[in-house]
Design a protein around this nucleic acid. Structure first.
Length: 557
RNA sequence: CUGCCCGUAGCUCAACUGGAUAGAGCACCAGCCUUCUAAGCUGGGGGUUACAGGUUCGAUUCCUGUCGGGCAGGCCA
């Protein structure tokens, strides 16, 4: 099943048939639109306007000819030509009623499609080095990454959630030195405290556990401390495992799981970094200058050429990055999506240039990047800047504990990734309609409550006569429900979960307005059953949509 | 100085990737508040889509320039 509008497609088919007579072979994109103005009907087509130029005919005249050739359909109540040559379609109530059984039959599959069947996508996100707790920016990435994975899976893609990190670089050396200093009884501010060090309280916790000889286990590694404060290698390994475990707890609180962890260091030990450099050299895209090896990234649109191999013999950070993405490609991921903070946008041109220069057949524009801006946290009207845990920033776990997983996810997904977001803790805790998560979840809980009050089995509503659904609120809700599948498809295609968030808010708004206007459990049996069937369809769309966002749908609130 | 992103109601944000009269929510104003779940409900005012050009039947959307904001510009990641 294509993941598209249940009724639009049928209208498009009718127009397509008419066009075979009116303008055979003419190139027309049959995108059917939903007019904003209800007076313009349920759907409209601009096919006549598109054809006006190539056929050199008056668009309104063409529209008339299309209408003459349009096959009869029980869906259509009437048609009209309007404006410059729009063809407007007014559908019968029965056409709209037909979507209710469709949605109820599809159930959890409503909004899913198979456009991505047989394709593999790798989504890399969070990818925090194990040097401290995850901050709210990581939270935005985790929410975005997980939602995008859900959206792709809903389109039939085989999805891999990957976390990439480095356990051997300069930052990790700093971490080990910081823990060692704490293990030797030093504190930030002491004369011997290392200049470049992590000062958060959590460093002291790691040192204490290290000295106690404890064991730690994370999703991807395990280690037992030697307890010897002079054993820097043991400290390093223990600290990495400890912080990876801490991050696992942060992610668990946020209900995010990864399928795979990938180590930057493995790119060196496997020889992939060397092999990548060799490919670039062989391709003639490098040159030596000032004792360093440079890559001609300017051949691929970068501002200036970049150093690959420093004069001290080590590689700059983007070389393993290129090697990593060649590995992604070779692992069969035809699509790779990287979710990163917008402060990393400089790496995009470099990595893509390296991949093209390597000449291994990777598509131009690989990988995709989704960049997001910073998140600030407001509480009690003031910006929160300090967390006890991290020392200098608010952590993801703080935010989840202050509010809830559902609120944090929903809020962080509610805006376009490239706009700065201010998280309002008080709003997230509010139990009223000002709080968007509450508003959407409450719509679901209300439906569940109505069914509980009714006491019947939803399955007995199958085949219900829906002719009683004539109120404006009911038709508006029906219309909204049909938009769900294409909203999901658009959110996936455009890496834009906020489209789904906005949709759910609007859908909940339509439902609440209806609920406030009409009583469902009325004495008239046919009306009651029709309303319950529609409410059940709304429930399905809300549950499915929230699930894609990683937000729960409580039955009681 | 250069590159990327952004600029829409007083505020926070949408706008089906080029469609018809640019939409919601806060806030503001006016009524209502006996209900399957209650922390409210219904309606209303509010706009030169930063600015100036261009492309065409048609532009918030695409192109050019200007102004303003964010982020980058290291043999750091």
């Amino acid at each position: 099943m294509p993941n598209t509008h249940p009724l639009k497609d049928q209208i498009a088919l009718l127009i397509g048939e008419a066009l075979e007579t009116v303008a055979p072979g003419a190139p027309v994109s049959l995108d059917i639109e939903r007019p904003k103005n209800p007076a313009h009907g349920d759907f409209s087509s601009n096919a006549a306007m598109q054809l006006a130029r190539p056929l050199k005919k008056n668009p309104r005249e063409l529209a008339q000819r299309i209408l003459t050739e349009l096959p009869a359909s029980p869906l259509i109540a009437r048609t009209e030509i309007a404006g410059a040559g729009f063809i407007n379609f007014h559908l019968t109530p029965a056409a709209w009623h037909g979507v209710v059984p469709q949605i109820r039959a599809a159930g959890g599959a409503y909004g899913r499609g198979n456009a991505g069947a047989g394709h593999k996508v790798l989504v890399e996100f969070v990818s925090a080095n194990p040097t401290g707790p995850l901050h709210v920016g990581h939270g935005r990435q985790a929410a975005l990454g997980d939602a995008i994975c859900n959206l792709y899976a809903a389109q039939g893609w085989e999805v891999c959630r990957e976390f990439y990190y480095n356990d051997a670089g300069v930052q990790i050396a700093t971490l080990a030195a910081s823990v060692q200093a704490r293990a030797k009884g030093l504190q930030p501010g002491d004369a011997d405290w290392p200049e470049a060090a992590y000062n958060g309280d959590y460093i002291a916790d790691i040192a204490a556990d290290f000295l106690a000889g404890k064991s730690v286990r994370s999703d991807d590694r395990a280690f037992t401390a030697s307890g010897d404060a002079d054993d820097l290698d043991s400290i390093r390994q223990f600290a990495v495992a400890y912080l990876r475990h801490e991050q696992d707890l942060d992610l668990q609180a946020f209900a995010v799981r990864f399928d795979h962890y990938y180590l930057e260091s493995s790119l060196y030990t496997s020889g992939r970094v060397e092999a990548t450099v060799q490919k670039l050299v062989d391709a003639g895209k490098t040159y030596a200058q000032d004792g360093a090896l440079w890559l001609r990234t300017t051949d691929y649109g970068d501002d200036k050429d970049r150093v690959m191999k420093k004069s001290d013999g080590t590689y700059t950070y983007f070389v393993p990055d290129v090697a990593y993405h060649i590995a992604k490609w070779e692992r069969g991921y035809e699509r790779a999506i990287n979710i990163q903070g917008s402060d990393h946008h400089g790496t995009i041109a470099r990595v893509r240039a390296g991949l093209q220069a390597a000449g291994v057949g990777i598509a131009e524009g690989y990988p995709d990047y989704l960049l997001h801006t910073m998140v600030r946290v407001m509480r009690g009207g003031e910006e929160v800047k300090i967390s006890k845990r991290a020392g200098s920033y608010v952590t993801l776990r703080d935010l989840v504990e202050w509010t809830s997983k559902d609120a944090v996810r929903f809020f962080l997904l509610s805006r376009k990734p490239d706009t700065e977001y201010i998280f309002d803790v008080d709003l997230a805790l509010a139990k009223n309609n000002d709080n968007p998560v509450y508003y959407v979840q409450y719509a679901h809980a209300r439906i569940c409550r109505v069914f509980e009050e009714w006491g019947g089995l939803p399955a007995t509503l199958d085949g219900a006569d829906l002719a009683a659904l004539t109120a404006a609120h009911e038709l508006a809700l029906l219309r909204r429900l049909t938009e769900y599948p294409e909203t999901v498809a658009a959110a996936a295609r455009e890496l834009a979960p906020h489209l789904l968030v906005h949709y759910l808010q609007t859908l909940a708004g339509d439902f609440h307005a209806w609920y406030n206007a009409e009583k469902f459990l009325v004495d008239h049996e046919a009306t009651k059953r029709a309303r319950l069937a529609l409410a059940d369809a709304a429930r399905i769309a809300i549950v499915n949509g929230l699930a894609l966002l990683g937000v729960s749908a409580p039955e009681k609130m």
